[in-house]
Design a protein around this nucleic acid. Structure first.
Lengths: 336, 336
DNA sequence: GGTTTTCCTGACATCGTTTTTCCCACAAAT
DNA sequence: ATTTGTGGGAAAAACGATGTCAGGAAAACC
């Protein structure tokens, strides 16, 4: 009646000692069939639920893991998350998600709270401008940690995308179609991811004997992509193809072309990145670099579990390849 | 060196007693400037972070709140979340997000874990087919709770949208334009939200002397919306306007029209719901019912905080109005 | 000088678990 | 009958904080 039932309440009701109840609840130790039944019945009758905070405090184990991500509203991330959650929840973990919105200060507060609450593991896309102290703090507290997408530090497990190879593939596709005037489109900050992608782009251009690759910034949403593309068209009307930092800006760029009376895939070719659901549905459907988000998610979960189970394992770096999906926004360059 | 620093570690390092350190860390009690400095310096040097699990256990207060939502990948939800988080984090709470994907079983597991971990509050969009036991469980554990969007139970604080009024407004707009053959488009299950919206739609049709409103199902994503619309066109070519259950399916429907060689806003009018970012950017831009997601988020946070502070408060039900944003997908019905 | 503040210590008790140790009874073995 | 073993359970000590209460030393007041 008064207050939550605890081990003590159940123990008294079942006429046994506290440790006995504890053992029954966990299915540990040696307990006779008879008392087990009695305890379970009492627990059910009292509506007893164990207090994980107390358990975690005593045992030092915490089956809550955090997923700290830079942009919750990105559909690609949402799909990765569902992959992570599927696997970890099956193993009895509770996964809770935090959104930093790429704000290093907010992230710092969240990570500190995370540590205070003593979570058992972390999957993390470090925000832009994440200071080294953030990594030091996590390392000092020995939190099992996998970084995702942005391998900005190097001393931790990591799961990411083979970014340079992906944009190299994309660039090669454009070169083979005959494009000579191209741009890398999207992103603003020089994150590791964008740097690698641009590197792959430029390396491949160079291999093709081309030296005039343009880099064109845009915030990572559709509206910004649209406006940035209109600007690009004004400033560099000679460009016949762009490789985008993500599908969202790519779709914005595609809209911009159509608004300017141009045809994506005919007048200007576009290659996206991520293969979000909208990419296939858009008009025209978007050619893009595809990585399976669900696969990424499962890999992330597996790496984290391994790290939790054996903290002394050597560091694992996994990079997943992206695949070129040719749809309707790439074609031969326009004549003239 | 060995193990995490605790109050004891810090106390010894600073040459003071444990209660003193505790008071300094919490900013409570009367502590002289001098010893406060000494303690803080020692804490910093040792990289001390208080253990919230222990604190929560002792004090009975837990400043972690959970946000259990039915579809993380929906951009509207993502924006609501950011509103909630902004306000609650400012108050020192840690907000962690769980995604049920509208799966009542997954939700049951998550809620149970939630209770075991003794979270301090919950903002909840109940999954479809949520059984009453889920509510009973939360009530039994006296968890401060605000339901969101789906007011399926009635005995808890709630923040939602004036759904029936919104679709009534939308329907009136179509009637005024002269439409007589309309459909309610999108959604599959008869959730409270959809039921209310359909009720507003049908009531307004009836007021206009029209009785042949069609209800047309679709899963809640763009691709499904596209296909459902193609089917609708086949089965009911007489329809000249649709009111959608959400912008995502509305945009899918808009695509379908264009793919069928029809012009949204000329041949068939479309009204969406949510006013997500894509709505304004789409071609043609989507007429839609808009509610400010950030405002919803802040309201949610406020209601929850009030409930936490005074558990005996009378139940609060807030419904926020949606506003009709007229863009390019509505117009007079086609002739013939 | 005495009296009041101000600041701090020490020694518990408490939250609800887990874990280790220890004990008892009963059975099997000597 | 004494030893040895063993299954089943209890008692007590943690875990890391918060809170309380009695008291004491130093500084501040008149």
């Amino acid at each position: 009646m008064s207050g939550k039932p605890t081990l003590d309440t159940v123990a008294k009701a079942a006429g046994v000692s506290i440790p006995t109840v504890s053992q029954v609840m966990r299915g540990a130790g040696r307990i006779s069939e008879k008392t087990r039944d009695r305890v379970l019945k009492a627990a059910k009758a009292l509506n007893y639920v164990p207090d994980q905070k107390a358990a975690a405090m005593r045992s030092g184990e915490n089956r809550e893991i955090g997923l700290v991500i830079n942009q919750l509203s990105n559909p690609f991330n949402a799909e990765v998350i569902s992959g992570v959650v599927d696997l970890l929840e099956a193993e009895g973990y509770l996964v809770s998600i935090l959104d930093t919105r790429d704000d290093a200060e907010r992230q710092a507060r969240q990570l500190e709270a995370f540590i205070r609450h003593g979570r058992g593991g972390l999957i993390w896309v470090p925000a832009l401008d994440t200071p080294d102290e953030a990594f030091d703090l996590l390392a000092a507290h020995k939190i099992p940690l996998v970084t995702f997408l942005r391998n900005v530090h190097g001393d931790f497990d990591h799961v990411g995308i083979r970014n340079a190879d992906a944009t190299a593939t994309a660039t090669r596709h454009l070169l083979e179609l005959g494009h000579r005037q191209t741009a890398y489109f999207g992103g603003t900050e020089m994150s590791i991811v964008r740097r690698d992608r641009i590197a792959g782009y430029q390396r491949t251009l160079a291999e093709g004997g081309i030296s005039n690759g343009i880099i064109w910034d845009s915030e990572d949403n559709k509206l910004a992509g649209l406006e940035a593309m209109l600007n690009l068209l004004r400033c560099h009307p000679e460009v016949t193809a762009i490789i985008c930092n993500g599908d969202v800006v790519a779709l914005g760029a595609s809209l911009a072309l159509q608004r300017a009376g141009l045809m994506p895939g005919k007048d200007v070719s576009i290659i996206g990145f991520d293969d979000i659901q909208d990419a296939a549905v858009a008009t025209p459907p978007l050619t893009t670099m595809s990585v399976s988000p669900h696969k990424l998610g499962r890999k992330l979960a597996k790496v984290l579990l391994d790290r939790i189970r054996d903290p002394d394992m050597p560091i694992s770096i996994s990079e997943i390849s992206a695949e070129l999906i040719i749809r309707g926004t790439t074609g031969e360059p326009r004549k003239g």
